[in-house]
């Protein structure tokens, strides 16, 4: 079974004043395919840093530890190689790419990931179906990537990519933030469709438990101050809902 394994990961960022700051301080996580792991933690605890570090964002420097995908050294791969190896990051703040249409972007990405251009006819149908499922207007295909998209539209567009690119492991960074209840359901259904069809491992980063009503995690990790402070099953999320992160913070 494909496994994404993060061992004792230490990550720093360069600060404006020229210094460096350690943000991840020994993260351990193992995710099997088909599993949903929720990572919950307060603002600034390093959740996005973990997500970006898995994807290979150049701003983050890995100073220790390892990330492996089926034993392959992910840290040795470039950003695009990681994606082609089956990693996917749905970003907390998706980036606008002026002048590049969604349809061109999706086709280019699909071609890159599969190593060959998708068959035109089935591809057009698949895109249409996936957009339809996510209640995205067909006109989005001809709009520029994320340009003038609302927060919710950007998140749908991320999940659209997840459904079409069919990664082995997906990191969803606060995909629930900025979504109203209806949009939250639509987006969650998209993730569940992916789980049912291709069964990726999912690292679901969130602040609140509400998305966990629609996407059921088998594992919950509490993330505090750059590392996993506690882990458990779905019941851990419920207790967090009641007590918040305070008991972890005061202990830290």
């Amino acid at each position: 079974m494909p496994t994404l394994e993060i061992r004792d990961l230490h990550v720093t960022v360069d600060e404006a004043d020229g210094g460096t700051k350690e943000i991840l301080r020994g993260v351990d996580l193992t995710i099997g395919s088909g599993e949903v792991h929720a990572v919950m933690g307060p603002n600034g605890s390093g959740k996005s840093t973990l997500a970006y570090s898995i994807a290979g964002h150049p701003k983050y420097t890995v100073t220790g530890g390892s990330i492996t995908l089926d034993g392959e050294d992910v840290l040795a791969m470039s950003v695009d190689e990681r994606a082609r190896a089956g990693l996917f990051l749905a970003m907390q703040y998706p980036v606008e790419v002026p002048g590049v249409t969604v349809s061109n972007f999706l086709r280019t990405a699909k071609t890159a990931i599969d190593g060959e251009a998708p068959k035109l006819r089935t591809w057009v149908k698949d895109v249409k179906q996936a957009m339809d499922d996510l209640k995205m207007d067909p006109t989005f295909a001809e709009r520029n990537v994320n340009e003038h998209f609302s927060g919710g539209e950007k998140k749908r567009h991320e999940i659209l990519q997840m459904e079409l690119l069919k990664p082995k492991f997906a990191v969803l960074d606060e995909t629930d933030s900025g979504l109203d209840v209806d949009a939250l359901k639509i987006v969650s259904e998209g993730v569940n469709r992916s789980l049912a069809s291709t069964g990726p491992g999912v690292l679901l980063i969130t602040h609140y438990t509400r998305i966990l009503r629609y996407i059921k995690p088998q594992f919950v990790h509490v993330f505090v101050d750059g590392r996993v402070a506690e882990q458990g099953g779905p019941e851990l999320a419920d207790s967090l809902e009641e007590t918040g992160y305070d008991r972890f913070l005061t202990r830290a």
Partner: peptide, 19 residues
């Protein structure tokens, strides 16, 4: 922008070309 495109498997050259 380049990171976003590359995170979808697109090579750096191709990403620059698109941008």
């Amino acid at each position: 922008q380049l990171f976003y495109l590359q995170a979808r498997g697109i090579t750096p050259d191709e990403a620059r070309r698109l941008v």
